[in-house]
Design a protein around this nucleic acid. Structure first.
Lengths: 201, 201
DNA sequence: GAGAATGTACACTACACAGTGTAGTTCTTA
DNA sequence: TAAGAACTACACTGTGTAGTGTACATTCTC
């Protein structure tokens, strides 16, 4: 069956989809509930029957996008595998997450708002920095194993992910640039690894 | 004389200052002309006597910030000076620009809006990429001189400036983080140069 | 110090939009 | 097929705000 969902579930989904789309292209302030309802093909009253307010709708969408883009598994340090290989794997995972369209939508919407909404910005900071800890843990383990000793354990993880974001995140989020093609992704990941190994080894 | 300006010039400046401040913290949509007038200590009518509309005021401010933050001189390649020294100088200039408070204001305001105003975003892209060409020219000259041959001439300049932005731009612009202290700036610039030389030499 | 330019206070229009209330329609389910 | 749940159309309130018009005050310039 193509539509196994009840009417109310379909309506709700249509509202969420429409809201993501509208918030994404117009931002929070410039998006009206009437527009969301129209785009969703739903009466305004139905929107309010599902979500008590515009703020609440926005918050739920942020939450939903966050969940769907954060299903990323942890990669522990493995002394048996060559550095280069492990780093490549680590960065490819990161790259995949950055280029995920849900994640980009989330980031666009969230950043546009958090630029002038300190509380939400703060929440994002803490959540994202928790995400960055994975690479930090990996590097610490490597250094405890006597590898990559020249790298600054505080700066290095950010330098790695920052290098990817330079090409595969910030231009897309802030300037609406298209996602990277596969060939460029490969170049960026490999250049980042090469550069890091040349520096830290 | 402390106030050599005519009343009308002082008023105009107060409006511009207030508008920058308000747009910076609240964004375009959430800032009202009444608020700007109040912050500037000026009647709303005076605001409209100086600027025909909110859009026009916004555009002029973008223009003004752009001009005041872009007074950066060009650094040509010099075969007589060591690579490391030239790179350090190049990146310090870049760092200075990134941390300039006018530039950060501009970026915050512009990015927050350009996220949902494609035309302005496009204008920013072209302007900024023209700015990035300086490093590209420098690298090409170095490579023509037989130096840094392993660096990808397309990716490398962006990797360099991207590395600085990771620490000294994006967190400040998108998450309202404080500017970098001098010690951290030094660490970032030097780590970037070291990493790049280790990779490209 | 007169006249022009500029600023101020304030009232006002027009509009967009968040959110509500209601009467009636359509869908689901038992 | 009947009853309840959910959806719809639509009218309506209240508020915030861009932008204007005007009569009067202040400042500049000659």
């Amino acid at each position: 069956m193509n539509l196994p969902l009840k009417l109310t579930d379909r309506k709700r989904q249509a509202i969420v989809d429409a809201a993501i789309e509208e918030f994404r292209v117009s931002g929070f302030e410039s998006t009206s509930m009437d527009k969301i309802a129209a785009t969703a093909g739903v009466s305004k009253r139905t929107v309010y029957n599902h979500f008590p307010s515009k703020d609440e709708l926005f918050a739920q969408i942020l939450h939903e996008l966050w969940n769907s883009s954060m299903a990323q598994e942890h990669q522990p340090y493995d002394p048996a595998v060559p550095m280069r290989e492990q780093l490549l794997s680590l960065l490819w995972k990161k790259m995949a997450m950055l280029q995920d369209s849900y994640f980009l939508d989330l980031a666009r919407v969230a950043i546009a708002e958090s630029i002038h909404s300190p509380e939400r910005a703060q929440e994002m900071v803490t959540r994202l920095s928790r995400k960055e800890e994975e690479a930090t843990a990996w590097l610490r383990a490597a250094q405890a194993d006597g590898k990559l000793l020249k790298a600054d354990p505080v700066l290095a993880p950010q330098m790695l992910s920052g290098q990817l974001k330079t090409f595969a995140f910030w231009p897309q989020v802030t300037l609406n640039q298209p996602p990277l093609d596969a060939a460029t992704q490969k170049k960026v990941v490999e250049a980042t690894v090469d550069m890091f190994l040349a520096y830290a080894n």
